[in-house]
């Protein structure tokens, strides 16, 4: 079993001072080079939790967080952490593909250039490698200078994944990455997720339980801000321990 890449300890989070906590006492290990899926009904805290892992909640003005989030043992909420660098190490892919209004090549090159890459041949190499890893190279190689928006939805989402991995992150956070895609594009992204774990640690939020069952090694079930059950996906989907998990995954919830 791989060691933990990220660890949360007694994580509490609320969106404002008087709001009920969105996360209650979440303690979890996210293992390196594996896919961890977060499932649960809307409002259960799974996306909030994902966003705590690279401090996306910093953008929420009144958010309050207690507890610890460690990346390779380093507390990512400690004052000396460079948040930009943290987000390079812990990348994110969103629900809807959000390519920049540039060419395909420029979308992928954007991050590396921001980080100081200048040599065009080095950038070409990064673009090719990232597009290859995202399974988009064969489709995009002859149209690298076309606008990213000319790609199909599924291709755009894979472009966003290529853009995320172009800066060589260690962890990839995915927030319902296939919810806007058709079944074929979804299958390609799911395949990609399973391939990505060789080089990255992947955490994925999904509303599609079968997707969690298909792509993840470990599944975490959230309910009303609590981590109810967390364990090997094979176990969660055949013999869950907690009745609430059972009710949710079999669709008998509520």
């Amino acid at each position: 079993m791989e060691e933990a890449k990220m660890v949360t300890k007694s994580l509490f989070m609320s969106y404002s001072r008087n709001a009920p906590p969105a996360l209650k006492d979440v303690t979890m290990d996210i293992r390196a080079n594996s896919v961890t899926a977060f499932i649960g009904p809307s409002g259960c805290g799974k996306s909030t939790f994902l966003r705590c892992l690279n401090r996306m909640n910093d953008f929420v003005r009144d958010a309050r967080i207690t507890g610890r989030v460690l990346l390779d043992g380093m507390d990512i909420y400690s004052p000396e952490v460079d948040v930009t660098n943290l987000r390079r190490r812990v990348g994110m892919v969103f629900q809807r593909p959000n390519p920049f209004p540039f060419s395909i090549r420029e979308n992928v090159a954007y991050g590396p250039k921001l980080l100081g890459a200048r040599d065009e041949s080095v950038i070409d190499e990064i673009v090719e490698n990232s597009l290859r890893s995202a399974g988009l190279w064969e489709e995009a190689r002859d149209r690298l200078n076309d606008m990213a928006t000319s790609l199909s939805g599924g291709q755009q989402q894979r472009l966003c994944i290529a853009r995320a991995i172009a800066v060589e992150p260690e962890v990839l956070l995915m927030d319902e990455p296939t919810s806007a895609l058709d079944p074929i594009a979804t299958a390609r992204v799911e395949e990609l997720v399973r391939e990505l774990k060789r080089d990255y640690t992947v955490a994925i939020v999904t509303h599609n339980m079968q997707q969690a069952a298909r792509v993840s090694d470990t599944t975490a079930f959230f309910l009303m801000g609590e981590l109810v059950e967390y364990g090997p996906t094979d176990v969660i989907f055949t013999t869950p321990t907690d009745q609430r998990t059972e009710d949710y995954i079999t669709g008998r919830f509520g």
Binding site: F237, T238, T250
Partner: peptide, 9 residues
């Protein structure tokens, strides 16, 4: 239905 948990068993 792609059953899981009790349903699958």
């Amino acid at each position: 239905y792609q059953p899981v948990a009790f349903d699958l068993r």
